[in-house]
């Protein structure tokens, strides 16, 4: 058992016995090496089902909206990226801070099962252990040890906040991760370098892969409307037809609606069953906000006014600054 799992269980046990929380949101392990899934537990007897490993990718903070409706006080295990989402939910008035206890988990990066599969390392794989950048693939025929970050999710390689930005206590020492700031918006710059026609064709092709499952929306911590406009029959924009116009409409509306609130967690792209690089849309908007209104990171500091909802006399006219995207 990994050391961190021991600490997670200890913390949860303590939290229940002291009456600090009524419920804990954490992870349990399923049948497969990559199968770490969210569980919600309500008493000490269930504490031993909790784990922490390199596949605890889900952001548990969005569950707080629903769970706080039926629970007074909740403990939750959050990584750096998840903690940004937590702050954003506070800022959006979707949850109450004093009813949540955050157990922060500094994170060196989560492992992308697809990348493991691509390297053929999934055959007979029983468990993946990780300590820093030393990864051990455990099979019944022995271990294979690999050093490096080649199995990390792409989004983890660009992570600015490996350590939670808000927490009550940390489950392990803080970690440090080098990120190349120069390359931060490389993906957006590639698309910006296209002509308007190329760009339109790029996104049309990407959106045409959409299967309209709503996974991107439902996993997104910034998508926290009580009823999404696309679920509201009275709005007359139900999005069920698999046609280009509706595919595009859905994704563009969503990108604009989370503009300035997207914490860049990349979950939209991770969960997309069709493989659409949805995070690039949000990434573009983050880049624009930075250029037009100065550096801003959603979820970093909830007391700081968000640029898209704070009017200042000296604000730039985006059509002058950016020429309307042309």
């Amino acid at each position: 058992m990994e050391k961190i799992t021991v600490k997670v269980r200890e913390t949860a046990r303590q939290a229940f016995s002291s009456g600090e929380v009524d419920k804990i949101l954490g992870f349990a392990k399923g049948d497969f090496w990559q199968d770490s899934y969210p569980i919600f537990i309500t008493n000490e007897n269930e504490v031993d089902s909790l784990i922490w490993d390199s596949f605890c990718i889900n952001n548990l903070s969005k569950y707080l909206i629903k769970e706080l409706k039926n629970t007074q006080k909740i403990g939750v295990f959050l990584k750096g990226c998840d903690s940004l989402a937590f702050n954003q939910l506070l800022q959006d008035n979707r949850i109450e801070a004093d009813r949540v206890v955050i157990y922060g988990v500094p994170c060196v990066g989560m492992i992308d099962a697809e990348k493991v599969k691509k390297e053929g390392l999934n055959k007979g794989l029983l468990e993946v252990k990780r300590s820093g950048d030393e990864i051990s693939f455990v099979t019944k025929d022995g271990d294979k040890n690999v050093s490096g970050r080649q199995f990390d999710y792409d989004k983890c390689l660009e992570c600015n906040h490996p350590n939670p930005v808000v927490y009550k206590e940390l489950m392990r020492d803080e970690v440090s991760r080098e990120v190349n700031k120069e390359e931060r918006f490389k993906d957006v710059e590639e698309i910006e370098a296209m002509s308007a026609e190329e760009r339109f064709s790029y996104w049309s092709q990407q959106f045409s892969k959409c299967i309209r499952c709503n996974a991107c929306r439902n996993i997104c911590p910034a998508c926290s409307c009580e009823t999404c406009v696309f679920d509201n029959a009275a709005a007359g924009v139900s999005d069920k037809a698999k046609v280009d116009s509706e595919d595009q409409f859905f994704h563009i509306i969503r990108a604009y609606h989370v503009a300035g609130r997207c914490v860049n967690c990349g979950e939209c792209s991770r969960v997309c069953p069709a493989g659409i690089p949805l995070h690039k849309l949000n990434h573009k908007i983050i880049k624009d906000i930075n250029e037009l209104y100065g550096e801003y990171e959603a979820g970093l500091d909830p007391s700081k006014g968000a640029p898209l909802v704070t009017y200042k006399l000296e604000d730039i006219d985006p059509f002058e600054g950016h020429k309307g995207g042309k």
């Binding site: 299967i211 309209r212 499952c213 996974a215 929306r217 439902n218 996993i219 139900s238 069920k240």
Partner: peptide
């Protein structure tokens, strides 16, 4: 409890066959 209410499972599933008419 953890279900997000998305339709990934349904839409990648070979046997799900429910439909709407609009």
């Amino acid at each position: 409890k953890s279900c997000l209410g998305c339709g990934s499972c349904t839409y990648v599933c070979p046997t799900c066959h429910c439909y709407d008419i609009q």
